[in-house]
Design a protein around this nucleic acid. Sequence first.
DNA 1: TTGTAAGCGTTATCAT
DNA 2: ATGATAACGCTTACAA
Lengths: 341, 341
Amino acid sequence: MAKRSNAKVTTHDVAKRAGVSQPTVSLVLSRNPKARVAEGTRERVIQAATELGYRPNLLARGLVRRKSFSLGLIVPDLKDPFFADVASGAERVASDEGFALLLCDRRGNGSLRHIEALRGRQIDGVIIDAAAAAALPAGALDGLDVVLIDQPDGAWPGVASDAESAGRLAAEHLLGLGHRRFAFMGPAADVHTFRMRERGFVKALRAAGLGLEASLLRRGPATVTGGMESMRALNALSAPERPTAVFCANDLMALGAHKQCATQGVRVPADLSLVGCDDIEMARLVTPELTTVSVPAREIGARAARLLVDPRTVGGVATPRSRMLPVKLVVRGSTAPQQAR
Amino acid sequence: MAKRSNAKVTTHDVAKRAGVSQPTVSLVLSRNPKARVAEGTRERVIQAATELGYRPNLLARGLVRRKSFSLGLIVPDLKDPFFADVASGAERVASDEGFALLLCDRRGNGSLRHIEALRGRQIDGVIIDAAAAAALPAGALDGLDVVLIDQPDGAWPGVASDAESAGRLAAEHLLGLGHRRFAFMGPAADVHTFRMRERGFVKALRAAGLGLEASLLRRGPATVTGGMESMRALNALSAPERPTAVFCANDLMALGAHKQCATQGVRVPADLSLVGCDDIEMARLVTPELTTVSVPAREIGARAARLLVDPRTVGGVATPRSRMLPVKLVVRGSTAPQQAR
DNA sequence: TTGTAAGCGTTATCAT
DNA sequence: ATGATAACGCTTACAA
């Protein structure tokens, strides 16, 4: 008969009930391989444990094993669907492997403070977005197992998508549709992924003998608002100067641009083709649906967590130079062949 | 000179350096009020601690204090913007109060398994969505400090929005626009919030002498897909049977319905007025923008966390019967006066 | 194979 | 005011 009182059941309780010593209980219940314990004892212990509803105290275990079986995750903003996906993927892996995921949203407190809190909890590793890591004072991550989100190289290992290809795919798609006058919108911040998306886009244009004028390179935050403002600026250009196709650093910006066009009566894709990047769920909900480059956000989160959880890769030893995750162009309704004007 | 080696600094190290005993260090560094320690000693300890870069081990502290300073958060799906908001609000409060937030996504593993994992980590409380709590076997939450998301009454305290008013506001808005033929779409699941939104809507219609025919009550999951399917069913009705206004259990459904109308060429709001509920960011990105009832998701998460963090309310003692959080109608472009047909 | 003893890094209860 | 000493619940040698 299962007893389920509030008082926590410890290995001592189980030991007493099974008529063995406390460490024997520990041996049976926790240690996997070299637990050489008599079959009879083992059974009695296990039965006693289940009868009492024993549940190991992971704090105590962590204290002695010097491992907390928990991961920190620092994201710029949980409301950004891209990072919600990353979190979802990381949570899945962590949970499957018996790790807790300690969530930190930079919108609330600065990442430095989060890092300190995570240290105190003896986390086994931390997943952090590249922008936050870059903004941290030197040494803030010393002694921590770190995996960066969507940044392949740098001081720490990272899990990344093939951002340069993303930009190239967008450019090639638009070039194939006959466009010749392009704009790009994205943040100026030194975030690897955005930089590479931009670079891939520009390189592909160059390869086609085209360039990107300064007035058609709009700098702004990679948010809905940033997209709206950048789009407004583009729409304010005189007709001949205006681009016929725009690539946005991410879908949030693209959706902002999309909305701005709707507001101002600019027809997408008739007047303007729009390409985003990430393929968040929202991209399919607007009309016309957003053409975008799909990035496996959930998989990025999952792999990041796996790097920190897998005993073969922790500690930076034998960290496989993580190959980039492939991206894929998803053609929807926001792009169309260029019309003669 | 700050020393920042990898070896963790303990109270023993600090004690040695400050020339005091280890418990004295603890007294100075942790205990707040009744720490009666000489000013000189205190200063030496603090200086030694900063010099060594001491950081308390929260696992050890938790073990003896029998408190982990951590909260569990169980959500059905982080990608649902409503719950991303809840998480964001909860994280903010938790972080501010020195608590960690352990994130659990039910999409991954079942909530029972998550509960068990959280128990092992000695969490001080758990925030869980009402649907998950309802699906749990009896006793699964015994001995835990629980706060339900968006469910005011029941076995555990909850933080909720005024869901019945939400439904009423939607109905009154549509009635005021002259609509007389209504539909509702929402899940059949026994989730309090959705039930109350529906009830408030139906009651307000009744008060106006109107009812809701069975064919105009569409059951489906509160997701984008659910909204699309329900909308398709409504659009399949013969013209006279078709509603002129639809209230959706949440914005995800409403956006699905919105999209479905766009796909099928049903004009919103000319042919059909659409009202959602929650006011997620996405609601402003579609065209026409979605009229909806704004629900303070972030505040719900924040209050839930505060209930578990505030020493005055933990343990179920003196839990203030949390008054409902107010909701607000936000009129946008998806609703319009009923046209003569 | 199993029990004894020690220790993980704290906090808490005493003496002093 | 401060220092021994003993937990907290567990893992890990090391003995027996």
